[in-house]
């Protein structure tokens, strides 16, 4: 009576009947966002004069370069299944510290690396608390948010203008492609961040470990992956991206203000999710996040073009579109299943 006694069994081959469909399914959320982006753009072009100008599209990048950088950092965190609520506050802190130090006569060459270091250190600290003390990311980064916002309020309650020559140069520098067609240096920086981030996610052990942790952190640990180090690293990256986003915002605004970037964490999360990254982690692409940021930017642009709408309509429309996108993606992915 053995159940090991193998019955005369032909060799088992495992069929993969739905091979193609399987491979495609992971791209569906991103493709859906892309399709809607195209649709929104077409609607804009059809309804408003001058919407088709190249510069309108480029301005979406110019106006949202800082958000793109912040959302790129957020993507790393969300891919591991975490969340970072502190990004908006770190952006604000960065602008305030930079403005204060510059006004005190510190050279830009010192201030720039210093503020980046501060943001990175904050991220590192939150990551360490999350990993070593098992505090939930939501709570640890909420504390980080209070801390960063509180620090910037403590430094200065008021808006501080920046007059540093380097900063103003960066703010005014335009990379021109033709008459009236240009991007700012911030867009170039954001593009570099996105490309570097995407390469890291797709082609390095660290990047793949990020996906593995989002898929199943316990398994990742048992497979011998450096889970703790990676988890701390994604919050550090997010901290760095927030600080860099803060620098770009200070280029854009030429001021430091503790109330800058209020609620930016929600914009970043919304962009990441609209871009098809699953909030529980393990699935999604940085390219999707770029699309998500563009969707948010395009909403703003359309509202601006409409012109007759009060500011609260922006919120309502973002809410409605957020709803439409999410439900649509949900239906698309469900049907594919």
């Amino acid at each position: 009576m053995t159940d090991v006694k193998a019955p005369p069994q032909p060799e088992v081959t495992v069929a993969t009947p739905h091979k193609r469909r399987r491979a495609d399914r992971r791209h569906i959320p991103v493709l859906a966002t892309l399709a809607l982006l195209v649709l929104m753009y077409s609607l804009g072009v059809a309804n408003y004069d001058n919407f088709s100008d190249t510069q309108v599209l480029l301005n979406v990048f110019v106006d949202n370069a800082f958000l793109l950088v912040v959302a790129a950092g957020m993507t790393f965190v969300i891919l591991t299944g975490g969340i970072d609520l502190s990004v908006g506050a770190v952006v604000a802190l960065t602008t305030v510290v930079a403005a204060t130090l510059l006004n005190d006569g510190w050279p830009a060459a010192v201030v720039l690396p210093l503020v980046l270091l501060i943001g990175t250190t904050l991220g590192l600290g939150m990551g360490a608390v999350i990993h070593y003390f098992k505090v939930e990311p939501f709570i640890a980064t909420l504390a980080g948010m209070f801390l960063a916002r509180g620090l910037s309020l403590l430094i200065n309650r008021n808006s501080i203008p920046i007059t540093d020559p380097f900063w103003t140069a960066m703010a005014q520098e335009r990379i021109r492609f033709g008459p009236g067609i240009f991007i700012s240096t911030s867009v170039v920086i954001a593009a570099v961040v996105v490309l570097a981030g995407a390469a890291v996610l797709a082609y390095t052990r660290f990047g793949r470990t990020v996906y593995a942790i989002g898929g199943n952190a316990d398994s990742a640990l048992l497979m011998g992956l450096p889970v703790g180090r990676t988890r701390i690293a994604v919050y550090t990256i997010s901290g760095f991206c927030s600080a860099l986003g803060g620098v770009l915002l200070s280029f854009y605004m030429l001021s430091g203000y503790s109330l800058h970037a209020q609620g930016m964490e929600l914009d970043a999360i919304a962009a990441v999710v609209i871009g098809g990254v699953i909030l529980t982690g393990g699935s999604g692409y940085l390219f999707g996040t770029v699309l998500g940021v563009l969707v948010l930017g395009l909403i703003q642009t359309i509202i601006t073009f409409q012109g007759t709408l009060s500011s609260w309509w922006t919120k309502i429309v973002i809410g409605i579109l957020l709803f439409a996108f999410i439900v649509l993606q949900r239906l698309v992915t469900r049907r594919a299943r």
Binding site: R205, G215, L222, M223, S283
Partner: peptide
Amino acid sequence: VYQEVNLCANLSVAENIFIGRE
């Protein structure tokens, strides 16, 4: 190799074999 399958279902088969030593 543990009792429960301790791999990452979201990653590809190849990655699950080679992750950490690609």
